[in-house]
Structure formats: structure tokens, C-alpha cells
Design a protein around this nucleic acid. Sequence first.
DNA 1: CTGAAAGCGCTTACAG
DNA 2: CTGAAAGCGCTTACAG
Lengths: 330, 330
Amino acid sequence: MKTIADIAKLAGVAKSTVSRYLNGGSVSEQMKKRLEAIIEETGYTPNTFAQSLKAKKTNMIGTIVPGLDSYETSQILTGIDNELRKWNSHMLVSNTNQNLARELELIYRLAKQKVAGIILLATEITEAHLQAFQEIAIPVLLVGQQHEEVHSLVHNDEEAGYAIGKYIIEQGHRRLAFLGVSEQNIAIGINRKEGFKRAVREANGCEVHFFETGFTMKEAAEGALAVFEGYFPSALICATDDIAIGAVKAAYKKGMHVPANISVTGFGGYSITEMMNPALTTVKLHFIEAGEKAARHIIKLANGEDIPKLIYSGFEIIARESVDKRFAPG
Amino acid sequence: MKTIADIAKLAGVAKSTVSRYLNGGSVSEQMKKRLEAIIEETGYTPNTFAQSLKAKKTNMIGTIVPGLDSYETSQILTGIDNELRKWNSHMLVSNTNQNLARELELIYRLAKQKVAGIILLATEITEAHLQAFQEIAIPVLLVGQQHEEVHSLVHNDEEAGYAIGKYIIEQGHRRLAFLGVSEQNIAIGINRKEGFKRAVREANGCEVHFFETGFTMKEAAEGALAVFEGYFPSALICATDDIAIGAVKAAYKKGMHVPANISVTGFGGYSITEMMNPALTTVKLHFIEAGEKAARHIIKLANGEDIPKLIYSGFEIIARESVDKRFAPG
DNA sequence: CTGAAAGCGCTTACAG
DNA sequence: CTGAAAGCGCTTACAG
């Protein structure tokens, strides 16, 4: 392994000159050519530890995720990694396994590793988080959740909820059920629901009941069973694709056919939804693009540039087979 | 931020003594107590860059994956991360996006980052790989594929293929089809199929046809359609869960019911298989445990310990609804 | 068991 | 534009 001293010796100059060349400092044209050739020839690359020791900063971006095993997370990470590569930066992934204490610990730990920035796929932002962000003094970007005091990138959940609500109403459905999650989760528990409500308010003669369940397909299957007791919606709007998958499973268990007896919609656009029987109508969130956007923005923050506090990522309705057209009664 | 010099001053000793304490060198009991207290109190933690600069090695383990968006990869990464945490080590994830050239590039790049070891979720090992491993002189562990010259951890694909074959035959099926992938993939394309073949050989009067398709659900759906042309197996054994999902989809498109008209099995144990209609009978591979095992072994290698060249990870048959019992003809 | 000194490979004022 | 020197925070022989 060559060091900067080797290059300097080969070029017959001081190390500082080589360093200046490497970092875009003032070096004569002639010297530039000479150094460029030597570096090219020797395949020299600076030792990142020595750099980091002085500069007290790395070119790594830390990402903290609640779990590695969801479609959403995988896609977002793919996007982040895609983009970071272009910037010659690396992604350091840490998994909290849904453990809030561990999340805080990781924030401090990444700070210690001197990452240039942190992308946090957060579920909830507590006071302790805010304090941590202050202390570490490293740029942080929230993805999927928003907080007024922190840079955030979110899917436009409210708009998306509105869009799917509007779609289902346009198909003629009027007896609706919404199967969501706890309001502790702002993006999914509140915003998606609120958007849906807005669509309902704009329509005429809708009856709608709201239900709550967990995030796993299993919990959702049970949650859906509860929906079907006593109330018979013609359409069930689910707050995530996993919930919709559980709901479809529950419907079949009850002997109901989708969409003949009940229409079901998801939220997310997981690839599996296309392969279900029937294929699921859902709101596709652009996860990969969101990850790429997040990467671009955290790099800007790391470079001291300014970015908007709140950034939106796109979505689209994917109409497939799980929703029937109804002719609205009266 | 405290440095080792601060601690030394507070303790009234030389930096070397503190360093020795930190690294388990010989220090008097009394001194140990004193330093322990001071370090505890100040919350001092060594600067990893300075350590790495000297030691020329980090506590990071690099992982190279072909994509972030498969269930298998997510689970394995979860296992690796779980275990690494216990060793106070970090996981650096790099995604090749199925690009072989990029895979090689990443191996060198991780070496430059001085990772303590590399876990490679490989698809194929070429001469260029072997050469790279030599050059970087960093321990490498293959996961999911094996190569005689490299430490490898694999699912016992042959045994698992045998087990699912045996299971399906025990259920009375004799007209079989196997929907696999290219033999370029040794673990999935060859070993699973060979295990299955062994089960068939041991049984009586089986008719079996072999087919090949791609890894995506979409390709598999097309591949399955090809199976159904002209041959009518009572059971279709698929080399992965994704292939089975595609096959089920294709069967429904053809108006066939699973398992009434055709039994289908998967391979992998993806969580979604439980939620399908019908729930898929499959071979569950213990991905998380495999990841944990991989992490333990790469750490051993990084510490210069010896480990077996080839390590196996477990599996189990999960019997669910997609396979019917048949009474074997004659 | 403990300490002084050199060195890991860079960067960064400061002179010239 | 260029160079000599100090320093980033550690570790590691070498003495004592």
C-alpha cells in the first residue's frame, strides 16, 4: 500500500503538496499533471482512517431501520444505496428490531463513528430523540414520519389516503370499512385515515366504520374478522398491504369471495400484491425513489447546504382485481 | 470528547498505561480499579479512527448482497446484525444489484475500508473472485453458495430437496413436475434438484418431468404455464417460494385449483407463504440462524481462529394446505 | 508493572 | 505555488 509520502517522494515534492492536490487546493498546472500521472500509475488511494482522524468525519451515511424484513425498508435502503454510490459514499445499516432504546443507542453510536449524516426510518420521535439530535450535531433526516423540528421525507400519506378513498367511492362503494393502525403512528395511523375521511366527506351517503389492528398479517387477519362481525361493508380499505393480505385471508376463511362479496384495497404497493389471488388494488408508494431522494438530501445536509424541512415522495393508485364496480344504491 | 491523554492525566499515569488497560495488557489491580472508575465517569470511548490507523483493521464486517429486496437476504442480514451487535461489531451492507462487476469492485473497496471480514451472499464464484480473495488477504465467508477454496455456509439444499421430495411422495403423489432454475446456480439449480431426484429414485413408479424458469414470480408464472402444456402432474415442486407463488397464480389463471387439481410446494419458508390461499407447503430454511452463524464464524476467522471449510444451516418441512393426499395408483 | 518516544497516514496553519 | 512542522488519538516496542 502506497502512502502519501510515497507519492510525494516519487514526485519529488512535499506531502503537503500532494495533499493539496488531492483536496483541490492550489497547485500549479504542471504539478497537477505530474501528480495525476503518478497517482494513476501507482493506484494510490488515501487512507480513510488517517483522513477521518484529522477531518473528524467520514463519508459514511448511517441508516437506522426498525427491521430489515419489510418490503418498504428493503426498497428504501435499495434507493439510498443506489444514490450514495454515486456520491462515493457508503451506507452503514443498523437495525433496531423495533427497540426504541436501541434506536437511541444507535444514534449515539453512529455519531461516534463520525458518520456524515443519519437517515432514520423512524416509527416515533420522542423527547429523547430530539435531545440526541441536538447532542450529536450531525445532520439527521427522518423518512416515513415527520417532525416539525427535524428534516423529514414522507410519502404524502394524506393525499394518498384521499386518492384511494376517492377511487373506491368512484367504483360505487358506499358501505365502507377502514382497517387502520394506532394513532401513535402519525403517517399511517392518522394521515392515511384522515385523507380517506376527506374523500368520504366529499361524497354522498357513505356509511363508514373504523377499525384498528396491528402491523402483522396475522394481527390483521384477526382484526378483519372483527370487522366482519355485525357489519357488512362492500369495501374494506386497509392502511397497509400486509393488513390487506391478512384481511383477504380472513375473508376467505369466512367463506367470502374477494371482490364478489367484498372489495379490499391495500396501501404500499408491495410486489407480492400483484401475485395474490385476486391481485390487490393498492396505493403504490415510490419507495426506491424515496430512498434516492433521502440520500440526495442527507448529502446536501452533510455538505452544509440548506434543504426544505419537509419533503414529499410520490404515489399512484394501482387498480387491479380486488375491487368490484358497484352501482351506488339510490 | 475525551481522549486517552485526558484519561491518563486524570489518572496521573502515562497514555500507554491507559492503552494497556483498554487492550487487556498487564496493569496492576489497583490501577485497573482507578482507570475503570475514571473511564466510567467520563464516559470515555476510544476514537476508532485512531485505533484503526494503527491497528490497520476495524471492527466492521462487510456484507455484500445481490439485492436488498428478497426475504432471504433480509432475514440473513437480520441474523448477522443480531449477532454482530453482541461482539460490538458493525455491519457494513453493500448491494450489488446483481451486478457481478460491481461485486468485485465492492470486495476491493471493503478491503480498503479495512473491514475485519467479508460475508458474501454470492450467486456465483468466478476466477476473478478467487483472485480478489487472495489479494485482499481478509477473511471471506460465502453464504448460500459453496466453493471448495473458500469458507462457506450453506443451507443443506440437497437434504432439503430430498426431504420435500420424500414428503410429496409420502402423500401419494407419483406424477411429478419439478420447476427449478438454471444449473449455473449450484445451490438452488443443482443441489435442490439432486436431492429431490434422490427421493424419486428411492420411490416406486414415479413419473417426473423437469422444467426451468427464472427467479421472479413473473417468470415463474410463465414457466408454470409451460409445465401445464401437455403434462398434468398431480404435484409441482418448486425450487423457491417465489417460483411457487408464480405457479399458484398461473394455476388459477388456467382455472385449476390448488390443491384439488394440483399440489404445489415451495422452498424457503417466506412469511408470505403462510398467508396465501391456500397456505403453501414449503421447506423452511432457517435464515436468521444462518445469518447468526455466519456472523459468529466470520468473527472467528477475523480473530485468526480456524473453522470448518463448510458449514450447514438447518431446515424443516412446513406442511400446510397446498398439498393434497393422494392414494397412489397401483 | 509503568513510562517516554516513535510512528500510523493524513491535514492544516504558517512561512517563504 | 510550495515546504517544514505540528498534530489528530491511538498503539507498540523498548527501557527501566
